[in-house]
Design a protein around this nucleic acid. Structure first.
Length: 481
RNA sequence: CGCGGGAUGGAGCAGCGGCAGCUCGCAUGGCUCAUAACCAUGAGGUCCCAGGUUCGAGUCCUGGUCCCGCAACCA
């Protein structure tokens, strides 16, 4: 029995769940479902990242405690996961006691690679934030927001000796021991590693940020959120002693967005090497979703809630669009127009109608009786390969190649003519072949569109057609502006 | 010269040395089992510019133009 461990990054509960989060959940869910389908023992984990100054600040603004805000927001992400028909085995919160305790164990285990040092930086008392040398130079030493000079401030931080693992990380990524998909992302991180990693600060003074996990043995410091958030991938398994940890680590695939690749391809491997643990086998890096070609933002007022889409068209339609029409290896765009076109043409017309016409003919000509169905005859090699590479869009292209092939087959065979000529055996064969195709399509679709796959099997899976209520994908009139 | 990605028919993309391809959209024809669905055919491209390598270049090299990421200690 093979074990399979897949994770998503855990969203920071600073903002509402958006399309990007939804897409990542869905991508990981496809991998998990595909693994379950081939019989692996799967552990699929997701969750929320809840500590840090931003959360404390926001809670303060709203007049609630940080944990109250975190509870509320975490639930929203959990609800989104459910609405998307995404089925994780674990949902970790970084405020879980277990995570906090285990993170401290990690800290202690890393002791040899942690040292205390002074962090020197340019600070604006207006923003209460540090700025980089570059930014300070650009602004000629004066903060444009507050019109006051940046101050040079020193603070004590704990640092992780990331630099000492640079070579090992570089080798692991170069050799695909830690495989980064797609290659462009791998090259990006390799160039970063060639430049060399610096040690990073992994704590903050408590008097500045106190919403965090205490550093063991130092009352004045809390862990830097990023450091601690990364640890979720092993604390959720029960690092260091739990059986799950021993059985499921290293992860098979970690799904992350392109914006946080450095954390996952540099810092995280550094931590793992420091702990003497194996690195994850693969990192799948997806792009960002834009709306109408523009970054989603509140100021532009162009953000689309995942629920708007799901409530109107259903989870499977959502999954379909974001898996096929947002390129798996690049950024993608969402517009209602593109979504509705894909929905109507591909889901309703091509697939939905293929199901419908097949079911209708079986009922009309054979009283719903399905003849001998031969099992899948198509070569799914390309599909399998794409799926293994997280090339979801291409994998679905392959499925749709079959859907189109089926429609072509029907038009070529013309079962309605065969019915008229009374060649019953031939008709039975042709219709059975259609069903066979549809069942194979349903099988391939299962990780991507679980509800749809189940419906198709429900209709044709037994010897007799069991029509569903309504249609697979009711067509929507495109709203014309 | 900080690093990297990209520029291909109206739109979105694939092709990465050997007849320029896919999806959408558009036009025409066919069919009638079906969700006004399905099928076929067609129109539409100086493959960013300028040089070069080659029998042959979207495809390789050099230079240029224009876009877009990253370059963080916000997570």
């Amino acid at each position: 029995m093979t074990n399979y461990y897949v994770t998503t990054s855990i969203p920071y509960v600073n903002g509402e769940p958006h399309l990007g989060h939804a897409m990542e959940f869905v991508a990981a869910d496809v991998l998990a479902r595909a693994a379950r389908k081939r019989g692996d023992t799967v552990l699929f984990s997701t969750g929320t990242d809840e500590h840090g100054g931003k959360i404390a600040e926001k809670a303060h603004e709203k007049g609630v405690k940080p944990i109250e805000l975190a509870n509320e927001m975490s639930q929203k992400f959990r609800d989104l996961v459910t609405a998307l028909q995404v089925e994780p085995d674990r949902f970790i919160r970084t405020t879980d006691k277990g995570h906090e305790q285990r993170s401290q164990l990690v800290w202690k285990a890393l002791a040899k690679d942690i040292y205390k040092n002074k962090y020197v930086g340019w600070y604006c008392t207006g923003d209460e934030e540090f700025f980089t040398e570059t930014v300070v130079k650009e602004n000629h030493g004066i903060c444009p927001d507050h019109n006051r000079p940046y101050e040079k401030i020193e603070e004590e931080n704990y640092f992780l000796r990331l630099s000492s693992y640079n070579e090992q990380i570089l080798k692991a990524i170069e050799s695909d021991e830690l495989k980064i998909v797609p290659t462009t992302r791998k090259n990006e991180i390799l160039s970063l590693l060639h430049e060399g990693l610096e040690d990073i600060s992994i704590s903050r003074p408590k008097d500045k940020i106190d919403w965090g996990i205490p550093v063991p043995g130092d009352k004045n410091q809390v862990m830097y959120v990023w450091f601690e958030a990364l640890l979720n991938y092993i604390t959720v398994l029960g690092y260091p002693e739990h059986a799950d940890f021993k059985e499921f680590w290293p992860a098979d695939v970690q799904v992350v967005g392109k914006g946080i690749i450095r954390f996952h391809a540099a810092i995280w491997p550094g931590i793992l090497l420091g702990l003497g643990l194996p690195l994850p086998k693969a990192l799948y890096v997806h792009g960002y979703v834009t709306v109408g070609g523009k970054k989603m933002s509140k100021s532009l007022g162009n953000s689309v809630s995942p629920y708007e889409v799901i409530n109107k068209y259903g989870a499977d339609a959502f999954r379909y669009y974001f898996l096929r029409h947002v390129p798996s290896y690049e950024d993608g765009d969402f517009t209602w127009e593109a979504f509705e076109t894909a929905y109507n043409n591909e889901l309703a017309n091509e697939l939905g109608n293929a199901v419908q016409r097949t079911a209708a003919m079986l009922q009309k000509y054979q009283g719903g009786m399905i003849g001998d169905v031969q099992g899948g005859e198509h070569d799914t090699g390309a599909y399998d390969a794409f799926l293994a590479e997280c090339h979801f869009d291409r994998a679905l292209d392959e499925v749709w190649r079959q859907v189109r092939g089926l429609n072509q087959f029907i038009d070529t065979e013309k079962p309605w003519q065969i019915a008229k000529s009374g060649e019953e055996d031939h008709l039975r064969e042709v219709l059975a072949a259609q069903v066979s195709d549809l069942l194979e399509i349903a099988d391939l679709l299962e990780p991507f569109l679980p509800e749809t796959a189940a419906k198709i099997v429900g209709i044709f899976g037994t010897g007799i057609v069991k029509p569903i209520e309504g249609t697979l994908f009711p067509k929507f009139e495109t709203e014309k502006a």
